[in-house]
């Protein structure tokens, strides 16, 4: 469980996040949704400590992350797997080396054990035959999937995904969503997924936080999202025709 309390962040005189609080539960995907540019990625980066919030506290299973010393931070970070919006694969390493990297650095496993784990993860994201490809030879969607494989390879307790299915076809998107859902449940991970894809929201949205211009306007589940009564959320949810037709029914 991750608890975020009163996070604020400004860049220069631009306020990006204003007093955001929330609880992200274990064993299921917690979704952060919102329009482009509202500060979702910044919030995620605050939670993992890549961006230092101006105000507020972050707790990982009661461990104070924002005020922890360097060792506490490193200890917590070694339990984190993260998928970045652009994949963030290491250009100089091939797919296999990218996925193996956290194991190389963080575990004392033997080479065979590592390769078993790597191949298992690559299979889960549907990339069995790309082991030796370099990142520059991959499509955007494949990079995302390699990024997911790298994020889950070390059995993290906390999984963060920044738009795991943007740039993927609808079928693969659903596969990735389900993968994240399954893994969260199977390994009892606390998973936070940033997305603006309504398909994901309706598919795996057990817990949803809606961010609007840096503020948390609403939280709930996929069952309550269609009748929240929050105008900004309705605009977001019913932006496309299919969702609108659902509403009038």
């Amino acid at each position: 469980m991750i608890e975020v309390q009163h996070i604020s962040k400004s860049f220069g005189d631009r306020t990006i996040l204003k007093d955001v609080s929330g609880v992200f539960e274990k064993g299921k995907p917690n979704l952060i949704i919102g329009a482009s540019g509202t500060g979702k990625s910044v919030l995620l980066k605050c939670i993992v400590g890549l961006v230092k919030p101006d105000d507020g506290h972050i707790f990982y299973d009661k461990r104070n992350f924002s005020e922890g010393d360097r060792d506490t931070k490193i200890e917590i970070r070694r339990e984190i797997g993260m998928l970045f919006q652009g994949g963030a694969l290491f250009d100089s390493k091939n797919v296999e080396q990218n996925v193996r990297f956290p194991l190389d650095i963080l575990t004392p496993m033997s080479y065979e054990e590592k390769m078993d784990r790597v191949n298992f993860c690559l299979k889960r994201v549907g990339l069995e035959n790309a082991n030796k490809k370099m990142p520059s030879e991959l499509s955007g969607g494949m990079k995302k999937r390699v990024g997911i494989a790298r994020a889950i390879v070390n059995n993290p307790n906390y999984l963060f995904c920044d738009e795991p299915n943007s740039g993927l076809d609808p079928q693969t998107s659903i596969l990735i969503d389900e993968l994240i859902d399954d893994l969260s449940e199977e390994f009892k991970m606390t998973t936070i997924v940033v997305t603006h894809d309504m398909n994901s929201v309706m598919g795996i949205g057990e817990r949803i936080l809606f961010i609007y211009k840096g503020q948390k306007l609403w939280e709930g589940t996929k069952d309550t999202i269609t009748h929240s009564g929050v105008k900004e959320l309705d605009d977001f949810v019913f932006a496309n025709k299919v969702m609108r037709s659902l509403r009038t029914k």
């Binding site: 890549l50 931070k73 970070r77 070694r78 984190i80 963030a88 290491f90 250009d91 956290p102 963080l106």
Partner: peptide
């Protein structure tokens, strides 16, 4: 610089490196 702007450095930091 490329590693920085493509978030590869962030990825290392998140791994606790």
């Amino acid at each position: 610089g490329t590693m920085r702007i493509t978030e590869q450095i962030d990825a290392l930091e998140v791994m606790g490196i």
